[in-house]
Design a protein around this nucleic acid. Structure first.
Length: 459
RNA sequence: GGCGCGUUCGUCUAGUGGCUAGGACACAGCCCUCUCAAGGCUGGUGCACGGGUUCGACUCCCGUACGCGCUGCCA
């Protein structure tokens, strides 16, 4: 009830000031990696502006004076770009409200500090500067959480916040507010961990005589075990998915589904459609657990939808980065080899294990497969396959299929009985691409050699 | 401890007083099949608990429990 009222109220305000542009920001600190939760926050900000037609600002909150800011910032920018979350203002591209690194905005903070001091809002405490709270109730009218009444009247439970350290460096609460004000941010969309900070931020806006922006606090993303996803957790950074060969569109789609839903049972939705449907009033309020399995499935959905050339390009890149000596093989060979893998793997990090046998003769044989298929009774069968193959003129998938089937019939066994030993002999694995096509790609010579090798090695 | 937020299958969610509580991932079985995928079919598990309000609560109110967040001279 409260929530709905709060929302209509907030949007009524928007309607009254149509002139003011919608401006949102993503304001990470340069930790050196893009957290998956941060990426989702950035994504929701981005979706919100793309839906309403506003500006998406990237601001780096580097008040901590870390070294290697360039490097740490690059990880974040790369992650955002990989996800397709382009910013309209910020590092690299500038804008009318820069600079976009807090470390370069000190004079601005000084001047606002002066204003606050002149207004009697600041006092010194052992060399640090604190903001004196007016000690009132502050109502946060949140677009996702509804109206929340915070009672800040008790100094014991809500001490005056520090805004500047004795060494002159700034505290997040202060610079964050100043920047949102100066950059004319209209909607602050951020993680729910900031909800309790919001009344304090509003106090600063008021002390400066400014209107606070609209707030929207989105639920946090948790680990499988219910704990907060932290840097140490596997899969907590976007980079992890880049390295594993996930598709950005799939990761982005998955992230959208955490705390937001199209409400019509669709899971795989293209980004244009999401932009069309997305709004703050259909963002959920409860925390979501990150489910790697579902992401993996969704990635497979996207992977299967890739065109042949897209798949080939991505697969080739992956093979090269995996150290496969690709130059030793003709392009046509590589192409047909990779084509047999299309639609079979959900993520590209599985590619090498799936098709490595195409690019080396020196592969391992799966032990369970050996125990199961390289049996005494299968020896004559594998020999029969070998002989049948050697008699073939054209070694194409159709011929191979026919040959295997007639061979099986002659032996009085099901085709599976000879398929498995053959696959194992030529690829070392009991899973893989379609055997008929795989054999065609490998070519008669290699196939016969590998069968011979298996025959002499295991029987 | 105080303050705040949350709680529908294991997980993500749909659901705004009357539904056999729907979908998806995962899981199990079956079908298809040269393996693996994919696809098809079937199955199981869910409204945290206790009070109200109401003719009737998953849905509204209160409390409890649990989870998470904030409570920093971190962001």
């Amino acid at each position: 009830m409260h929530r709905r009222f709060a929302r209509s109220f907030a949007f009524a305000q928007d309607d009254n000031c149509m002139a003011s542009e919608i401006r949102v920001r993503f304001a990470p600190s340069p930790t050196g990696y893009l957290h998956i939760g941060g990426a989702r926050t950035a994504l929701f900000n981005w979706l919100f502006t793309r839906h309403h037609g506003g500006k998406f600002v990237l601001r780096i909150e580097d008040t901590d004076r870390t070294r290697n800011i360039e490097e740490a910032m690059a990880a974040i920018c790369d992650g955002l770009q990989w996800l397709g979350l382009n910013w309209d203002e910020g590092p690299h591209i500038g804008g009318d409200f820069g600079p976009y690194l807090q470390s370069e905005r000190t004079e601005l903070y000084e001047s606002y500090l002066k204003k606050l001091q002149d207004g009697g809002h600041i006092f010194e405490d052992q060399g640090a500067l604190r903001f004196r709270s007016p000690r009132e109730h502050v109502i946060v009218d949140d677009l996702v959480c509804g109206k929340i009444d915070f009672d800040l009247s008790n100094e014991q439970t809500h001490p005056d916040m520090t805004i500047r350290r004795p060494d002159g460096s700034w505290i997040f609460h202060f610079v964050n507010v100043i920047d949102d004000m100066e950059m004319k941010i209209s909607h602050v969309i951020r993680g729910e961990d900031h909800l309790s900070n919001t009344p304090k931020h509003i106090e600063i806006f008021r002390a400066l005589g400014a209107m606070p922006p609209h707030y929207a606090h989105i639920p946090l993303i948790l680990n499988k075990d219910g704990s907060k996803m932290s840097k140490r957790d596997e899969g907590a950074s976007v980079e992890y998915y880049i390295k594993r060969g996930y598709l950005p569109a799939a990761v982005r789609n998955y992230l959208c589904l955490l705390g937001w839903s199209p409400k019509d049972n669709r899971e795989k939705i293209n980004i244009e459609e999401i932009i069309r449907l997305f709004d703050l009033n259909n963002v959920g309020r409860s925390q979501a657990t990150f489910d790697p399995d579902k992401l993996h499935w969704l990635n497979g959905e996207y992977a299967r939808e890739l065109s042949d050339s897209e798949f080939y390009a991505l697969a080739l890149t992956k093979l090269k980065s995996s150290g496969v000596k690709i130059d030793n093989y003709p392009e046509q060979y590589i192409q047909s080899a990779l084509q047999t893998c299309k639609g079979k793997i959900n993520t590209f990090d599985k590619l090498l294990a799936y098709c490595g046998f195409y690019f080396t003769d020196d592969f391992d044989y799966n032990p369970e497969g050996v125990a199961k298929h390289f049996t005494a009774e299968n020896k004559p069968r594998l020999k029969a396959v070998r002989d049948a193959f050697s008699a073939l003129q054209s070694f194409d998938a159709a011929e191979i299929e026919t040959t295997l089937k007639t061979t099986a019939a002659n032996l009085g066994v099901k085709v599976g009985a000879i398929v498995h030993p053959t696959r194992l002999a030529v690829s070392g694995s009991n899973i893989g691409p379609s055997l008929y096509h795989l054999l065609e790609v490998l070519g008669k010579e290699k196939v016969l050699a590998r069968i011979d090798r298996a025959l002499s090695k295991f029987f």
